[in-house]
Write a protein that binds this DNA or RNA. Structure first.
Lengths: 146, 146
DNA sequence: GTTGGATTACTACAGACGTAGTTACCGCGG
DNA sequence: CCGCGGTAACTACGTCTGTAGTAATCCAAC
């Protein structure tokens, strides 16, 4: 079995838009995607959300129309799974090699590394507070419409 | 255009096997893949090598049969492109976020990070020696057969 | 009431993918 | 000389992907 999970890139883009709005209708997600420069047909977004629902990646509240969607898992969790898979497939599981390449590629500076270390050191001292590293979290709710 | 480049995962696996043997025939590559647990039909490997050649990812010496293939680019270079793409698509270009997640996922330890820093510090002092970080390089030539 | 915009459920589809079968050669061992 | 294993060139194909069109509803403003 190919793990019913495993999102495609198009699906991931939609899911990311959904995380951004936190919860929303097809129209909401579509608008968020548009804001990101992805102009898709209304039905395309619906198809994608449908596939995501089929993969249990998003939950749908069909109580009343229009249906409201929201991600089934936290962003961190999904991205981390993706990352793990990537490290395995491309870098043979060698995470350090990956980081070394990030640096060589200048995607990451020495300063960034230090900042990360500092971050970790703090986390190790204080009791693990939010549990999740503060990644690219989104702005505010920003619903609108309806 | 979808950049004639952009290897699929199956193609990447083949390319990685090719790097491992450095240069070789379809049979050589197939054997290396088998060693890695990927048993593919001879023709499948040929198809994949053909597609890689079409994408200019591998060079073919058709002087005499059986043809000899070899990667067109260094491993580091290709993996790095992949990585860059991944960081952009999944982590919105935020490399530090990616690393933070590697740590949180325990794919990377604090010690690994320090080792990397040390590595960089050295590289900054000494004149950049080999230019490429010593990543998952392969064993020895190991041809055999033929 | 009628109609038009919003919405959902299906269907469509071309192109990419992963794998492999078929056909045609070709040189070597018998 | 002949057949066979190794090889190259094509063809095949079921799936998956990304995108979207169509049909059927529903509700609110005329």
């Amino acid at each position: 079995m190919t793990r019913s999970t495993d999102l495609t890139t198009a699906e991931l883009r939609v899911l990311k838009a959904l995380w951004e709005v936190d919860r929303g209708t097809v129209a909401d997600v579509r608008a968020e995607l548009a804001r990101r420069g992805q102009d898709l047909a209304y039905t395309t977004v619906m198809t994608l959300l449908g596939r995501l629902a089929a993969k249990a990646a998003v939950l749908v509240d069909r109580e009343r129309e229009p249906f409201v969607y929201r991600a089934a898992q936290r962003r961190e969790s999904v991205l981390r799974d993706r990352l793990r898979e990537f490290v395995r497939e491309v870098f043979d599981g060698k995470a350090d090699s990956l980081v070394l390449n990030l640096v060589a590629d200048e995607s990451l500076s020495h300063a960034d590394l230090k900042a990360i270390e500092r971050r970790i050191a703090e986390a190790e001292v204080h009791p693990p507070p939010p549990l999740e590293p503060i990644t690219p979290t989104g702005k505010l709710p920003k619903k609108g419409r309806r």
